[in-house]
Amino acid sequence: MVDASVNAMAGPRGSKPQRRFSSRNLMLYGTLIVVSLYYILPLWVMVMTSLKGMPEVRLGNIFGPPLEVTFQPWVKAWSEACTGLNCDGLSRGFWNSVQITVPSVILSIIVASVNGYALINWRFKGSEVFFTILIFGSFIPYQVMLYPMVVMLREMGIYGTLTGLVIVHTIFGMPILTLLFRNYFASIPEELFKAARVDGAGFWGIYFNIMLPMSLPIFVVALILQITGIWNDFLFGVVFISKADNYPMTVQLNNIVNSVQGVKEYNVNMAATMLTGLVPLIIYFISGKLFVRGIAAGAVKG
């Protein structure tokens, strides 16, 4: 230290020391961890409850792990839980949801991607006007359009059927998906499109040969967005499916858990809730950053 005051070259030198455990860092990570607990808590409670037997659930420690792990609630929720007179469990709703989701996702993505492509590369008189109506329409509460939609589907003879619901999902998914594809296609250099036209490719030729192969990421984003969105739908399922046997999983889940008859089996309810949440959760954890990209793309206007 004595040397340091003599030697003018002394003093700080080299890389600046990092204080890993500064009070700022403690506060930062402390807050983030506490917040994370709030977000994790419900998932933890659901899983734990679903793995306990009813006697243990009645003991009341919802946060504690099961003393004795049982998968009985899951089995029961999947294949035995009752809604009304049906007692074949959530599996029925699961398969209904699959039958609703798969065609809805495919049809809505096809329609919206072609829309987005036409809007960017083949603008025609009025195309932007229709698009603007479409985007503003996405803010209209569904309740305003529900009844005329019922009337239309009834006139077409498909009210209450799967086909009807698929059309409803395609229509109401159109604004956000069209926006998504339109913005993505807009980022593809226009010269590529011009080059393809000089090369003699037409509307569909350019779509299939040039645009589609370049747009796989955005198709995956749309896929994630639509699978979770349609799987999670409740309102359209209630309104546009007329037979309780055909209800999607969310509707059936609500009917099971909120039914007033019988003794409440909380463990079975939580297993059922987990089962319903499983498809979007799996999609979410697999897709990771693409999911984030999807919702960000959906959120940012064009």
Binding site: Y39, P42, L43, V45, M46, T228, W231, N232, D233, F234, T250, L253, N254, V257, N258, N269, M270, T273, T276, G277, P280, L281, I283, Y284, F285, F291, I295
Partner: peptide, 13 residues
């Protein structure tokens, strides 16, 4: 992750 879940699941949990 909660955003991936439906309101039905959220409400019931």
């Amino acid at each position: 992750y909660p955003f991936a879940l439906s309101f039905i699941v959220t409400g019931l949990a």
